[in-house]
Amino acid sequence: MATKHSRAASRLMISPAVLLLLGWMIVPLSMTIYFSFLNYNLLMPGAHNFIGFDNYKYFLTDPAFTTALVNTLVLVGGVLLITTVGGTLLALLLDQPIWGQGIVRVLVIAPFFVMPTVSALVWKNMFMNPVNGLFGWIATSLGLPPFDFLAHAPLFSVILIVAWQWLPFSTLILLTALQSLDSEQMEAAEMDGAGAISRFIHITVPHLARATTVVILIQTIFLLSVFAEILVTTNGGPGTASTNLTYLVYAQSLLQFDVGGGSAGGIIAVILANIVAIFLMRMIGKNLDA
């Protein structure tokens, strides 16, 4: 099929996409790297002199950075824990023969389509608000004092909101994986006298391992960049209690107009994301051969 002529045509067909993405990667990223070495604040006009690694030093030694790094890891880890454990349980449940499976599926998957600003504001006001929220009402009815989620457990609240958005994703992927499980293999194991638990451990778990890895890696990519949910609920606060790395870089760049410092923070975020990306790419790359 591949003649010289079609080779040239194919190159021509691929090049717009490649050139655009190449430009998208190289131009802004090299600008960020360049800015990260400058003493450049939008509020202070004048020469932007070269200051070497000072921005990095400043950003990395800022106590807010350590908090943000820890918050980022807690946020990603917390959401992953809830969504993979909850998603596995839900997928196992939905894989059983039940009445109305189609409708159940549709209901479970719905939160994934809710835009981040809507879900964050609905949770913040109509559930977590200590005076008018449903959680407050439940607490009061049980004779407990209402709990101010966003003031006293801001990061946990953000984790809850984000986990609600991503639970459908992990459930759906794990369910898809479960449904591709070879039922003959299961029946054979059953005939050989393997109990339900042993079938689960020796057949289902290994089968789900790959899908779980994919879920974890893809979610991590998105969860490292959680932004809107924090912006509309806590603004990163109180203090920096719910600031993650993405939000810290945003605040440094667009609230304090520190182009140099924000750029250094951006590059650090890129490096962190790359570490995750390498693992994800290997997984997907392996699949490409198969």
């Binding site: 993405l21 990223l29 960020t32 993405t246 923070g265 951006g266 490409l288």
Partner: peptide, 30 residues
């Protein structure tokens, strides 16, 4: 019409998706 480099190109395209938006926020903003 897959070539020898098709897989590399696909993987590279995917890698651009992994770029966190804050990494390019300032240049795009300016």
């Amino acid at each position: 019409v897959p070539g020898k480099r098709t897989k590399d190109v696909l993987m590279w395209m995917l890698s651009t998706k992994m770029l966190p938006p804050v990494g390019v926020l300032i240049p795009i903003f300016l």
